[in-house]
Simulated scan of single mutants.
Amino acid sequence: MAHYTLAVPVRYDDNGTEQTAYRRVGAVFENTKRDTGETCLTVKLDFPVGVTELLAFQPNIQDVAE
């Protein structure tokens, strides 16, 4: 089962340069239905999120070890 880190992009100003940081808000799990073999995604949020954009990244090595 594959999983991805779900993040929210946060833009901020760093000495006149716009930067983007990514804050983890949950995880996305890729599942396969046993009877049909169809792939579906499950989104699990760490807390309620009120945003207009979410991004999913492959996890870092340390995230996999947890």
Results as ranks from 00 to 15, higher is better:
30 E>V: 11
9 P>H: 08
7 A>H: 03
9 P>F: 02
64 V>E: 11
48 P>V: 02
23 R>C: 01
6 L>P: 02
31 N>R: 14
12 Y>P: 07
62 Q>P: 01
23 R>D: 03
57 F>Q: 11
12 Y>Q: 10
8 V>F: 02
45 L>H: 03
54 L>S: 04
53 E>T: 13
14 D>E: 15
4 Y>W: 13
18 E>K: 13
15 N>C: 10
17 T>M: 11
30 E>C: 09
26 G>L: 06
31 N>Q: 11
48 P>I: 01
32 T>F: 03
43 V>K: 11
21 A>W: 00
25 V>M: 05
36 T>Y: 05
8 V>D: 02
7 A>L: 11
18 E>S: 12
4 Y>V: 04
8 V>Y: 00
65 A>I: 08
4 Y>P: 03
64 V>M: 14
37 G>F: 01
31 N>C: 05
50 G>D: 14
17 T>C: 06
56 A>M: 07
9 P>D: 11
30 E>T: 07
54 L>M: 13
25 V>A: 02
38 E>F: 03
35 D>N: 10
28 V>T: 06
28 V>G: 07
62 Q>W: 10
51 V>Q: 09
55 L>K: 14
65 A>R: 12
36 T>E: 08
36 T>G: 07
45 L>Q: 06
20 T>M: 07
38 E>Y: 02
59 P>R: 10
13 D>C: 07
43 V>H: 04
2 A>D: 07
57 F>E: 11
66 E>L: 13
45 L>Y: 01
61 I>Y: 02
51 V>G: 03
10 V>A: 05
28 V>A: 15
44 K>A: 13
56 A>I: 03
57 F>P: 10
62 Q>S: 12
41 L>M: 10
33 K>W: 00
16 G>E: 02
65 A>P: 00
20 T>V: 15
36 T>C: 09
35 D>E: 15
6 L>C: 10
66 E>I: 12
6 L>Y: 00
16 G>Y: 02
30 E>Y: 00
45 L>S: 05
13 D>V: 10
40 C>D: 13
6 L>R: 06
66 E>K: 15
42 T>R: 12
44 K>R: 15
35 D>H: 08
13 D>L: 13
61 I>E: 15
12 Y>W: 14
35 D>K: 14
44 K>D: 07
25 V>Y: 00
37 G>Q: 04
62 Q>K: 13
40 C>W: 05
44 K>M: 10
22 Y>K: 09
4 Y>L: 15
12 Y>N: 12
59 P>C: 11
62 Q>G: 03
16 G>A: 06
41 L>P: 01
3 H>L: 11
48 P>L: 06
45 L>F: 04
47 F>N: 09
26 G>C: 12
7 A>D: 01
9 P>R: 09
40 C>M: 09
5 T>P: 00
65 A>K: 13
55 L>C: 07
33 K>H: 09
12 Y>C: 10
39 T>H: 09
35 D>I: 03
4 Y>S: 13
17 T>F: 05
20 T>F: 04
56 A>P: 04
43 V>P: 02
47 F>I: 03
27 A>Q: 13
5 T>K: 11
38 E>T: 07
3 H>K: 10
26 G>T: 03
